[in-house]
Simulated assay, not measured.
Amino acid sequence: MASVVGTYQHEKSENLDAFFSAIGVPWIPRKMMTNSNPTVQVSQDGETYKIRTVSATKTVEITFKVDEAFESSLMSGEKTQNVVRKEGDSLIQEQDSSKGKIIITRAFSENAMDMTMEHKTSNVKATRHFKRTA
């Protein structure tokens, strides 16, 4: 089983602009996000996980326990309800907002993290690939 704890550097994305468009992100922020190369830091303290995504324009952080509901915010500031479950080497986040249900699957291996985002209402998916750096 691969450790989820680590630091990951963005390498490439697939279909990201279409995904952000499907969830209603305006053109300028969408272009900024699709051209970003974020670093993702995953840490764990006991049963509590923290995922911190750092880019040139914004830092987003979520803190959660597996299978426990928590609140986070979209880029627009809108509050969302979330729950994360663990399946094998993946953390699967279900997010509910006025934009619909979004499923974010973070699949970990010894050398990488692949993050697939699916907007259930429109069935649009995007994937971001990250290389483990630490």
Rank of each mutant, 00 (worst) to 15 (best):
A112F: 04
G100Y: 09
D17E: 06
A107W: 00
N15S: 05
V84Y: 01
T48Y: 03
M32I: 15
K120Q: 13
V84N: 04
A2E: 12
S76M: 02
V5W: 07
A22W: 05
A134K: 07
S98K: 12
T34H: 04
M117W: 12
T53E: 13
I92K: 02
S21P: 03
K65S: 09
T121Q: 09
P38H: 04
I62V: 14
G24P: 04
K131Y: 05
T59C: 05
S43G: 07
I23G: 04
S73C: 11
G24A: 01
A107L: 07
H119T: 00
E78L: 02
E71C: 03
T34W: 00
F70T: 13
L91M: 14
V4Q: 10
L74E: 06
F70V: 13
I62R: 09
D67P: 03
E87K: 00
E87V: 03
K50T: 15
H10R: 10
M32V: 15
D67S: 05
V5K: 10
A134N: 11
G77L: 07
E14M: 12
V66F: 06
V66S: 06
R30E: 05
Q81T: 14
T48C: 10
V83E: 04
S43C: 06
Y8P: 14
T39M: 09
S43F: 03
V83I: 01
Q95E: 08
K99H: 07
H119S: 01
A126V: 06
K99Y: 05
T53K: 11
E118S: 03
V83T: 00
R132N: 02
G24T: 00
S97N: 12
T80M: 01
A56W: 00
N123C: 07
R85D: 13
S36W: 02
E47V: 05
F70E: 11
I104D: 10
D45V: 13
N37W: 03
T53F: 03
A107K: 11
S98T: 11
K58W: 00
E61I: 09
F70C: 13
I103C: 02
T80N: 00
V25I: 14
F64R: 02
S72F: 01
S3A: 15
I51E: 08
I51V: 14
A22H: 05
I23M: 06
Q44H: 07
Q95I: 01
A126L: 04
Q81M: 11
E47K: 08
S90T: 00
T63G: 12
F19S: 15
E47N: 09
K101E: 08
F19C: 15
A112G: 04
L74K: 06
K86Q: 10
H129V: 10
E71D: 13
A2T: 15
S21E: 13
K31M: 15
A112V: 10
L16C: 12
V124P: 07
